[in-house]
Amino acid sequence: MRVIVCIKPVPDPKYWNRLRFEAKTKTLVREGVPSIINTLDKNALEEALRLREKVDGEVIVLSLAPLDSISVLREALAMGADRGILISDKIFAGSDTLATAYILSTAMTKLGAYDIILCGDQTLDSGTAQVSTQIAELLDIPNLMHITAIEFTDEAQFLVKSQIEHGYMLVEIRAPMVLSVANQINEPRYTTLRNILEAEQKNIEVWSSEELNLPERLVGLAGSSTQMGDFIFPPKKKKAEILQGSPEEQAAELTDRLHRLGFY
């Protein structure tokens, strides 16, 4: 079985206070902010590795990201992926979800036959949760989101549990397919030093727009119908009363007020 896992490097939320926004170019300045694998993409990779343990096969990680994101792919290889491909090209910058899905689906087609494409449900940064469905649409294969369990029934038939508001669906679905996973699906494994050293030996391929034969008008800003407009910094509706003093003094003041208001 061949499983492709999409992973996205995202700015580490621990350092989000260092992110700056450049209004002129409408881009996020990520200088000095380390990237990590998007949390849910790790769950997707973990699930791929578990499937491979059950039925054998190959796990390929695919990432559309700037060239300096190679360390993130290296981490995915250390977790156990067999092959890593970084899709990177300056002209891809500014791609909206559809342009992103177009680039990724083109790479998947170039990879040839695949059984399952796994993604995380959403990313920590932009979080539109649209890309997995759009990949499926462009590849003309079925997809499901919010997956919390995948059970393999025969060579191409799967039973999956998909979360919906206030409940879930049990669904039979056949490969090839795209599944995006929720965090309850598993607990991603840790990497050992040995895994990391082994991953150093694995080759990471880099594909540019040339390798994928992508016309410039369909990718990046030019290929994106959804446009970011101006930014609104809303007037501070309500300014909080900021308590003064040491943590202890602030805590004492707050508890005192809560007590007087009858909250305890």
């Binding site: 309500k238 009363e241 900021i242 943590p247 508890t255 007590h259």
Partner: peptide, 23 residues
Amino acid sequence: FESCDIGLVGDYREIVQSMIKCI
């Protein structure tokens, strides 16, 4: 702090521990 009525700025661990103590 733009959506709240009362704001406390500081390490939440210290603040919450003190609150528990006060209560």
